[in-house]
Amino acid sequence: MSDNPLLEPIHGITLEDYSAACAKMGSGLSEADIAKALGVEVPVWQEANLLWPERMKQDETFHIVTLFGQYFGQADQHPKFSNLKAAVSAEGGANTDRIKSDKSFYEELEVARQVAYEYGLDGAQWIADKYGITLGDFQIAASNWNAQIHQDIAADFEGYNERQAAYKAKYQQLFADAQGGNVADDIEF
């Protein structure tokens, strides 16, 4: 156990618990579900939910927030939440598994989500509607792929950028078509 006082549990809720809880909230679990899984009542959970981010704010070394990201990515393995899943369709379940095991699939959807926002859509909702993947699961995937994507960028910056640009072009086209084109499509050089 670390000596860092900023890592002390808050009302018995550890940073691992808190991080997994946040991931699961993003997947559609209610505060009551979260509190129950952690063995506390809602007022206790709400205090921890307020105080853990304070610990992160107080820590200029970013150690707490880094650990938060790691534990967030491991939410599916957290014993207190392992049997707790929000209801998703079979297809949603398959896509959720895929986004965590297929890096290209994750990268493509991450671009799609951003481009959706650029076309005035709620990107997180678009992903949920289209693929049945919750924001929490999306963020779990993000946090798990993060290190590897950094390695990819270091190894082949251009290749990475090309893939990203291709995804971007694909989804810009898709969303532009849906809104009847871009505002300046008719302006040519």
Partner: peptide, 13 residues
């Protein structure tokens, strides 16, 4: 047992 945790010094609790 309502809660299985050990409460610490929080905001109101």
């Amino acid at each position: 047992v309502f809660m299985e945790v050990k409460l610490t010094d929080g905001i109101n609790i």
